[in-house]
Design a protein around this nucleic acid. Structure first.
Lengths: 93, 93
DNA sequence: TTATTCTTTGACACAAGTTGTCAAAAGAAA
DNA sequence: TTTCTTTTGACAACTTGTGTCAAAGAATAA
């Protein structure tokens, strides 16, 4: 979980509590805990708020969050992963 | 829709009717029509059946189907797409 | 040690999205 | 026309996602 690991690292570096992030997202602490551990997926708007709150680049964080989703699509398709990403890349517009 | 386009092309080349594919998938023709037009997503098992029925390579077809899903994740994130795919690629295991 | 604060777990409710059916319309071929 | 194929839209059933809550576990402080 690239996104989860990153926000945990940044939160700790910034000496913030889960409670504070949860409050910024208007969800309860257990829910934030799950997001931070990759047990639940954040929504896009939540990623944006987290980036602001952790003073990190929004696009960097969004990229990790999206990469997790891409990897999730590829979950269990190990042998096709590389080919799939090539095709996807060739069809990005 | 890479997958949808491909199965339409192959079905026509094989002179088959949507009704026949629908029957192989045990769904009705309207449902199959939607899959073929990219209006609905096929499930993995359906892709496998379609590949068999259209005598095409299963992995090729699965790759298109997966690539569609990856592109869907990237939908509306044009500027991040390339970067995201790089990250995903670097984290394929 | 106990007390307090922080984080995680699991069960649950409800919202949202998916997968399918059906009736009927639109398109193509005869 | 008539018939066969494909598409559309509305809907029900099922599945998944998002959040809350109570309570347990970990870490820290006193």
């Amino acid at each position: 979980m690239l996104f989860a690991n990153q926000i945990k690292k940044l939160r700790e570096e910034n000496n913030l509590l889960q409670r504070q992030l949860a409050s910024a997202l208007e969800i309860d602490t257990p829910m934030y805990s799950k997001i931070e551990r990759g047990d639940r997926l954040a929504k896009r708007e939540q990623v944006v708020i987290i980036a602001k709150f952790l003073s990190t680049d929004e696009n960097e964080l969004l990229s990790l969050w999206l990469a997790d989703k891409v990897l999730d699509v590829l979950e269990g398709e190990k042998e096709l992963g590389g080919k799939v990403l090539e095709i996807a890349n060739a069809n990005l517009k």
